[in-house]
């Protein structure tokens, strides 16, 4: 990918590993991507592909000392995240980079009033007085479309529906107007109507506040609707990286093709036909196959796939695919084509 100056986040060679009693498990490897200002970047993949771990690594929330995060570059709008101390990262969280979690039902403290929690980043980072925080939270509640916001300030989490709680969580994530919001499957736990509302809200807020968003999801529909750029993750690596049009028009990694093929189509005539799926399972990260990690499930596997990880092959226009199909077979790329 080309270096753009207008990136809020720039990550190169991010690697996260866990040290256990039985050796290391490398849960993320060779993760490189950029998030443009005001853009929505998707991370898509199956469970265990490393989507959420990427988010935690960026937030500095990977449990130390068992988890180790390294990167040649992790730059949040001019701040080098790799050089920051624990406390430096803490001060960044909630102010410059914040997160919306998957489960709105459990990500609010049940015994504290909603406004106190939504306003917490203000108390932590700006030392604001309670009255001022309350006023600001009310503003945010109006902004995220919580009906009757004044009455909801003093509500406890259980008094709000899932959709309202997720709106409150988004208000919490945006209250300090962060540069980057990471949304970790923000709609997975919600019903479909609410999902659509929340997604529309996030698009709307991106336009109004200008916060860049990393959208973590396993739903390609959400990707198509929301994202500008997409990173497809598999077994702790980015296997394909493209803008959203290229990804859906010219999917270039067999895994991406498999994912797209397995979306049921409403136009399908014979509904009784079995839905296409990718054979096999996501590999255990502790026992990864050598070479290309997708090889055991890949219909296009070749001898070379067994020997060496291809690295991201550059397909032009910022489109990359980690696949030998797009590389000369005798090629032995030494460095990563990030």
């Amino acid at each position: 990918m080309t270096e753009k100056t207008d990136n809020v986040l720039s990550v190169r060679d991010l690697r996260t590993e866990f040290r256990g009693d039985r050796g290391h498990v490398r849960v993320l490897e060779d993760i490189s991507f950029d998030v443009g200002r005001g853009k929505i970047v998707g991370l898509v993949g199956e469970s265990g592909s490393g989507k959420s771990m990427t988010a935690l690594s960026l937030m500095g929330l990977v449990p130390k000392p068992r988890g180790q995060v390294t990167a040649t570059r992790m730059d949040l709008d001019g701040t080098d995240l790799t050089r920051l101390s624990q406390d430096g990262l803490r001060q960044l969280r909630g102010r410059d980079i914040s997160m919306v979690f998957q489960e709105p039902m459990t990500s609010l403290n049940p015994v504290r009033k909603v406004w106190e929690q939504v306003g917490e980043p203000l108390a932590v980072h700006q030392g604001m007085k309670r009255r001022a925080i309350r006023a600001r939270v009310l503003e945010m509640f109006e902004m995220v479309g919580i009906p009757d916001p004044k009455a909801r300030l003093d509500a406890y989490p259980h008094q709000l529906s899932g959709g309202l709680r997720q709106r409150a969580m988004i208000a919490m994530g945006l209250i300090c107007e962060p540069k980057l919001l990471i949304a970790d499957e923000p709609t997975t736990a919600l019903d479909v109507t609410t999902q659509a509302q929340i997604l529309r809200l996030m698009l709307d807020l991106r336009d109004r506040v200008g916060t860049s968003i990393i959208m973590i999801t396993h739903d390609l529909g959400i990707i198509a609707e929301m994202c500008d750029e997409v990173n497809v993750m598999y077994a702790g690596q980015i296997v394909e990286q493209a803008n959203v049009f290229d990804l859906f028009e010219r999917p270039s990694h067999p895994y991406t093709r498999g994912l797209l093929a397995s979306i049921p189509k409403a136009t399908e005539k014979r509904l009784s036909r079995r839905m296409p799926s990718i054979p096999g399972m996501v590999p255990n990260l502790a026992k990864l196959p050598g070479g290309c990690r997708f090889r055991p499930r890949c219909g296009d596997a070749m001898p070379i796939c067994m020997q060496k990880d291809p690295g991201l092959a550059d397909l032009g226009n910022g489109h990359g695919a980690r696949c030998w199909l797009h590389l000369p077979h005798d090629a032995h790329p030494q460095g990563e084509t990030a």
């Binding site: 937030m59 929330l61 803490r90 001060q91 960044l92 969280r93 909630g94 102010r95 914040s98 997160m99 979690f101 489960e103 459990t106 990500s107 609010l108 403290n109 049940p110 929690q117 917490e120 980043p121 932590v124 980072h125 969580m169 919490m172």
Partner: peptide
Amino acid sequence: EFIEAAHANGAS
């Protein structure tokens, strides 16, 4: 999860 959310808020 709400403790993790608090961490994500930068709470000490």
